[in-house]
Amino acid sequence: MRSSKLCASALAGALVAGSPALAATAERSNAGLLADGTTIEAVTLTNAGGISARILTYGATLQSLFAPDATGKIADIVLGQDTPADYERHPNYYGVTVGRYANRIAGGHFTLDGVGYQLPLNNGANSLHGGTAGFDKRVWLVRSISSGPVASVVLSLHSPDGDQGYPGAVDATVTYSLDEGGSLTIVFGAATTKPTIINMTNHALFNLAGDGSVDGAMAQKLTIPAAAYTPVDATLIPTGELRPVSGTAFDFRNGRVLAEALRNGHDEQIRIGRGYDHNFALDKGLTATPQLAARLEDPASGRMLEVLTTEPGLQLYTGNFLDGTSLGKNGHLYRMGDGIALEPQKFPDAPNQPGFVSARVDPGKPYRHVMVLRLTTTR
């Protein structure tokens, strides 16, 4: 695969004499109001290569991510909604920061140090993405913004002891940073006053052809370096098994077009998930520095996205529950397959699965997850 041609002329210019005019920028603005009159802010990070990310303080949400294709044409490549009020009225997790615990916890219940904790049940019999009022439905504070070779914004949130049933008062941060090489780095951090569980990620749904494209995202090619995945029961809770992907619809090790097996009714797991809604056990495991978790390529536009992470798992979700009733940006009605979520994280239901990597966080030992969205082109 050849190196990226991502706005080569602009990037080359940035290297000449290191012109300050071509440094990445961070701009703060008013994004609109919530139903109770709360003002939501937006911070837009932009680099010289034409990539820009707009982050809302509501849910620490990645509302848009604009990137050029192989010819330089720029498009928004994440699904979302037009205003903060839309995110509040019609919560669909588009681009939000999810926590305290991303993904599902069976029965909304877990035990820590012999004490049982009950979480809200907001996904059938289970708890999903932190409960009915998770991190995605909170207003985060802007702690700092900066421009320069790397443009960034730091957001913070205080979650009190007992919030949504979780133990410990937690101070969480999310830092978005955009560099001139085309990487948007998202760093999640959290410190707790009591032993607790934390599992944070970003829930962007990507379509490298551009949000609202006629053919959706399922013609795009996905690679996941994982020899095993965690099959689920009828409520989408992992069974505890690490099942080999070899010879199944879940083998993305050498890259495959998403649509190839999306409706493979012969695979029970595809039937259960109504498509892909499964966690992959990454070959790399839990790492100190971010390593490759997924590569998504759009043959039509030439855009390529690489997702890197320090976490051991990656949830693949093909928008199976989007049914045309969800109104997105620019009046788009989102349907199944219009976007793909690639969510690095601890495994679903890890607090109840002793064979999974632990999600426990203790006082004095802060949680940290680094994920990178690296944008390039394939030609």
Rank of each mutant, 00 (worst) to 15 (best):
V78E: 13
L327P: 04
Q353K: 15
I77F: 10
T38I: 01
P20N: 01
P231A: 06
A204Y: 12
P290I: 11
A151K: 09
K194A: 02
Y87H: 12
G339M: 01
G255F: 13
F321I: 05
Q81A: 13
F280P: 03
A26K: 05
E343A: 10
G59A: 11
G189N: 03
V232E: 06
R379L: 14
L112R: 14
Q164D: 07
H109F: 08
A350Q: 10
G124Q: 05
Q220P: 11
R89M: 07
S177F: 12
P348S: 11
N126H: 11
R2D: 05
K5N: 15
G72L: 13
F250V: 11
D277S: 12
E41K: 07
G124L: 08
A53F: 15
A17S: 13
I198F: 03
L236K: 07
M1N: 11
G339V: 05
D283A: 15
T193I: 05
N264Q: 00
Y276Q: 03
K73F: 03
T378S: 15
I55M: 02
V170Q: 00
F280H: 02
P84I: 02
D76I: 05
R143A: 12
R143P: 00
A249H: 09
E268Y: 05
M200T: 11
T193V: 04
L296S: 08
A227N: 14
P160I: 12
E260C: 04
Y276W: 10
Y367L: 03
V361A: 10
D69Y: 04
L333R: 15
P20C: 00
V142D: 13
K137M: 09
R100Y: 02
G182A: 13
P238G: 02
R100V: 06
G247V: 02
S183F: 06
K365D: 04
R274E: 14
F110T: 04
R2A: 06
A293G: 04
L184A: 07
A191V: 07
V307K: 04
L34I: 08
E241F: 06
G162K: 09
E27G: 09
T173M: 07
S29H: 15
I237W: 12
V43F: 00
T175C: 01
S147G: 08
G255D: 07
E306N: 01
V187Q: 14
A53T: 11
G189W: 00
S358H: 03
Y93A: 13
D215R: 15
A293S: 06
R253H: 02
A85M: 10
A48P: 05
G339H: 01
R104T: 14
P20T: 01
A106Y: 10
S29K: 12
T25G: 00
S358P: 09
N207L: 00
G328R: 03
P84T: 03
V16A: 00
G302I: 14
G107I: 05
G328F: 09
F321A: 10
G32F: 07
R374L: 10
P231E: 01
G328S: 12
L242Y: 14
G210P: 09
F347Y: 08
P68H: 14
S326T: 14
D136R: 01
K329I: 01
T310Q: 08
L141T: 13
E311L: 07
Q220I: 07
G331W: 13
M371L: 15
N103S: 02
R335M: 02
K194G: 03
A10D: 11
D215I: 04
T46V: 10
V372G: 03
R253Q: 13
